[in-house]
């Protein structure tokens, strides 16, 4: 086993469907082939896909729970203090009618209502938000999948729980959810370096700019992989140059790549050349940024 500096890389993109998962699965595959012990965390809890590309043995599965209040109507005086404390409007109350109801979907599990209640009328119960599944794949490599239940409003807790399971791992690749809101922030906050995957189109560029701005305010280093190069226009190259953002790799548009990926196959397994390229990208990143400041 090759010893390597601790390194956490997030693979992200503002726009969906640019090839984040293609890059994450291919990079993870290339590391496995090099016998580098790596962990791939699928942080796209709304639509986790990574495990459809790999064979693995389920080692551990844990429910991610959240506490929601249950009101004991025998003790409740309908004073309304819990309603006032709730910043999410999750408690509905009609004092004169003696009606009180918890909207579980809106509850964030902050516990404020329990603190508010002076009559001991609120107890808490656990509800499931999703699962964190851990799979052993070849060697000592591991895949940790976050999977939010359908109908749950926010994937953030499930994502956090999945990332926390990778705390003691040295080389961690995180496949981030798309966008620049909370789920993205929670993922990249734990990375030493962020690879932004984009495509050379006006939509791709617009979303890339937003991701870059967000990472800047967070003080995160990033580089860009352009997928489907050759499709679209070249405005993106000027942008990267002006911003001084490293262009790590270009993956040309190729129907064969699209077809390989569509079958749920790892592109780097079919295109050996991509393995070599991704490994050299990885080595450059590790050399420059590998020290895992953000490991808690």
């Amino acid at each position: 086993m090759i010893s390597i500096k601790p390194m956490r890389i997030a693979i992200a993109s503002g726009k969906g469907g640019t090839g984040k998962t293609l890059v994450a699965t291919s990079l993870f595959y290339a590391l496995q082939r090099e016998r580098i012990e790596a962990t791939l965390v699928d942080c796209d809890a709304e639509e986790p896909n990574v495990m459809s590309f790999f064979q693995g043995q389920l080692e551990k599965s844990a429910e991610v729970m959240q506490r929601v209040p249950v009101i004991d109507e025998n003790k409740c005086t309908y004073c309304g203090k819990c309603h006032e404390y709730c910043n999410y409007k999750a408690i509905f109350i009609l004092t004169p009618m003696k009606v009180i109801k918890v909207m579980e979907d809106l509850c964030h599990g902050c516990g404020a209502c329990t603190v508010a209640c002076e009559y001991g009328a609120i107890v808490e119960k656990d509800v499931s938000l999703g699962q964190v599944n851990q799979y052993a794949v070849s060697g000592n490599s591991k895949i940790i999948e976050s999977r939010m239940n359908v109908g749950v409003y926010s994937p953030v807790r499930v994502i956090k729980a999945a990332i926390n399971e990778s705390n003691d791992r040295r080389v961690v690749i995180m496949d981030s959810p798309p966008g620049t809101s909370c789920p993205f922030i929670q993922t990249v906050a734990r990375a030493d370096f962020v690879i932004l995957v984009t495509e050379p189109t006006p939509f791709g560029l617009s979303d890339l700019k937003q991701s870059v701005e967000t990472l800047k305010t967070m003080g995160k280093s990033c580089g860009v992989i352009i997928n489907r190069a050759g499709l679209g226009n070249d405005a993106i190259y000027g942008y990267l140059h002006d911003q001084g953002i490293p262009l790590l790799l270009e993956i040309p548009f190729d129907r064969e790549i699209a077809s390989t990926y569509s079958k749920g196959k790892i592109v780097a397994a079919e295109k050996r050349h991509l393995q070599t390229l991704l490994l050299s990208v990885f080595n450059i990143i590790v050399k420059k940024y590998g020290n895992s400041h953000h490991q808690r």
């Binding site: 939010m148 959810p177 966008g179």
Partner: peptide, 8 residues
């Protein structure tokens, strides 16, 4: 994209 609160 996704299936979270913004989609709902």
């Amino acid at each position: 994209p996704g299936i979270g609160c913004a989609v709902i």
